[in-house]
């Protein structure tokens, strides 16, 4: 349990997807002009990360790593498919986003109206594939750890995008040097937020 909380807090604050690894920057900068849409996208990211990462974890553990196919037949023990992981992960992510979109549309139209336009975009959000690739690198012990990591990273991303959207709404009334307006200042604010988040570095639970 302690271990899970540790992973959760670490993935939100210390190894924040945006401030430490710059993952999902494209949509982060493009969709952070108002708090409302930023919240929608943030929730969609948590949702999709929380579903795709455990699936990719199982795929990694039972299909892709060396000797993972042993459960199928002992003679497969030497098969190493890890070079296929990129293409498998992205295929899983693309198809699950499609699936999630259809399920959400069918069962909760309200949620669909809120997430609608963002769901398809998420297939190519680096944060999602990045989550799976980090999962592969961190070699989690069980699926619970992987799921907690996914939710933590999602929440961290959500916090970052809602935070910058709020700041960008405020600075519309500020006098910024003309060449810095828009994109330039967004980068610098993200950098400053990153410095603030660095304060969490070194926290151990």
């Amino acid at each position: 349990m302690e271990n899970l909380i540790n992973i959760f807090v670490k993935s939100i604050f210390i190894e924040n997807m945006i401030f430490a690894y710059f993952l999902g920057m494209c949509s982060y900068l493009a969709v952070s002009k108002s708090v409302k849409t930023a919240t929608g996208l943030g929730i969609a990211v948590i949702f999709v990360l929380g579903i795709t990462l455990p699936v990719n974890y199982l795929l990694e553990k039972y299909v892709l790593t060396e000797g993972a196919l042993k459960w199928l037949d002992p003679s497969f023990a030497s098969v190493d498919l890890s070079f296929l992981s990129f293409i498998m992960f992205i295929a899983v992510i693309a198809s699950i986003t499609q699936l999630v979109e259809m399920v959400v549309e069918k069962f909760t139209p309200v949620l669909y109206n809120q997430l609608g336009i963002f769901l398809p975009l998420i297939a190519v959000n680096c944060a999602i594939l990045g989550g799976s690739l980090f999962m592969q690198q961190k070699a989690f012990l069980n699926i619970g750890e992987a799921t907690v990591y996914a939710l933590g990273s999602g929440v961290g991303w959500f916090l970052a995008i809602v935070g910058i959207a709020a700041i960008r709404e405020k600075i519309q009334y500020s006098q910024i040097p003309a060449p810095l307006r828009g994109l330039g200042i967004a980068f610098i604010i993200t950098g400053l937020m990153g410095i603030a988040f660095m304060g969490f570095m070194g926290i151990k639970l």
Partner: peptide, 27 residues
């Protein structure tokens, strides 16, 4: 070396580029 400075460096590059190429300035 730390991540945040990469963002600020790019912010400054954008600033320099846009002040030289004024067509790119956003409103």
């Amino acid at each position: 070396i730390l991540p945040p400075m990469a963002l600020i460096t790019i912010g400054i590059i954008i600033w320099v580029q846009r002040s030289r190429n004024r067509k790119l300035i956003e409103n």
